[in-house]
Design a protein around this nucleic acid. Structure first.
Lengths: 244, 244
DNA sequence: ACCACTTCCTGTCAGTCTGACAGGAAGGCT
DNA sequence: AGCCTTCCTGTCAGACTGACAGGAAGTGGT
């Protein structure tokens, strides 16, 4: 406890975005190729530093969402994920990054074409494969983001954020199946989803054609917390290990 | 896209701690009285700036836990809560605070006596009462911390962190009742808690006396996620309206 | 028009879980 | 021994879940 004038250290503040969507019935994450050092050429999450010292952190996340992903934050689920600030994670200095989780509906196919056009949707299993080179600690951030999405699918209406404003129950089921990496019984899923109060509401008498019998359309209901929650079937891979 | 040399802005990084415990069958939070401006004299969460630019953020949280609360981080649940960095939340500059949620077992009664002795356990309803003056945005941080604890009691074994290493089922029930602010049926609670795989395990043939029949002792089991989860009964305040 | 095929949706049924309630077990105290 | 306290085991009806069958509503082929 010296009596000298001590001033607290300063850090560089960044935001990183885990943007998830459903394409080809697979969970995909948006990655960009880094054009500058460090980690030039490696894949990374969209993100960047605060533009100026007066910028709000959620605003920075929305700005990066538009600049690097070409996505409009309006009508897009965006929530804070966690903070990553281990010393040495960025060689440029002490960088503390606030990670955000964004969920994009499947519709906006063309992500590129905007400012930073070198962005690709990547299936999550590919992004997390051993041979994929990810910058910084972005691998861990992606893992955390996916786990957050998996968890929130149980207790919240987050699944509707993966869908267009109007969607069928089958589409909703595909969200659960892709994110949880399971297969669900359609009949039980129909029953369960419609019994949860305020989860989804019928969207007019409209219907939608594709191949078989037309499906009814729904939209997100008024409730964001699910009572009772959706139950995730136990994955066979989760064998319990007992730490001593 | 200017060609000028742009340097990202720097911010001051702080940690704040929401430390919850159970005292007198009530959920209580540790608050300190601020001795310096801004908000001198107001109540605040324990916390402070990073000590130096090389300090890890979790380490800073543990250091503040020891310095301001006199608690040892070992064997204490500590998890990151969220980040609070709205411009203007601190008049000294752009301060971004990483909030942590800590759960303390009921035993360590004397919190004071250490470096910063002006720390008190405060029932959460008192801390959040309208007449209580809380510094900065700490009211919101406390609300978020309590909600996190409430939520995690459902799906994780967090409740055991409120208890001594060995505890009775009744003590565990009091945790749920205090945090959720509900009353639970002891008989159903016994059945439920013991049926959840790996939640609690019997702790030897030991017993513990107090007033009536001795209670069996348990300790935390190997699993930290609960299958199936504990279900929180709907609070009477949430009157559901059933649309026709 | 009819059939084959696709997808969507409704029903049934047994096992399990939940909420409500009764009553016995095991201590201390007078 | 009684009486009080607290702990714990049982029972039972209703709700929920997982597994499975079969009808409803479209499209396309012949």
């Amino acid at each position: 406890m010296g009596a000298d004038i001590w001033t607290p250290p300063t850090v560089l503040l960044a935001v990183d975005l885990v943007i998830l969507t459903l394409r080809d019935s697979r969970l995909q994450v948006l990655l960009v190729e880094r054009g500058i050092d460090p980690h030039r050429g490696a894949l990374a999450l969209p993100g960047g530093f605060l533009s100026d010292v007066t910028e709000d952190i959620p605003s920075a996340a929305e700005r990066e969402l538009a600049e690097e992903a070409g996505l409009d934050a309006a009508g897009l689920h965006l929530e804070q994920l966690s903070v990553y600030g281990t010393p040495g994670r960025d060689p440029r200095g002490r960088v503390v990054s606030v990670a955000y989780l964004a969920i994009a509906p499947r519709l906006p196919e063309p992500v590129a074409g905007t400012d930073a056009a070198n962005a690709w949707w990547t299936p999550t299993d590919v992004a997390l494969a051993d041979h994929t080179r990810l910058a910084f600690d972005h691998r861990q951030i992606i893992v955390d983001g996916i786990e957050r999405a998996r968890s929130k699918l149980e207790s919240s209406a987050l699944a509707t954020a993966f869908c267009s404003p109007e969607f069928t129950i089958t589409e909703l089921q595909q969200v659960y199946e892709a994110v949880w990496d399971v297969t669900l019984d359609p009949r039980n899923f129909y029953r369960k989803v419609q019994s949860v109060d305020g989860f989804i509401v019928p969207a007019g008498p409209t219907r939608k054609t594709e191949n078989g019998r037309p499906a009814r359309l729904f939209r997100a209901g008024p409730h964001t917390v699910l009572h009772p929650p959706m139950t995730r079937p136990p994955r066979p891979a989760d064998m319990a290990r007992t730490p001593a």
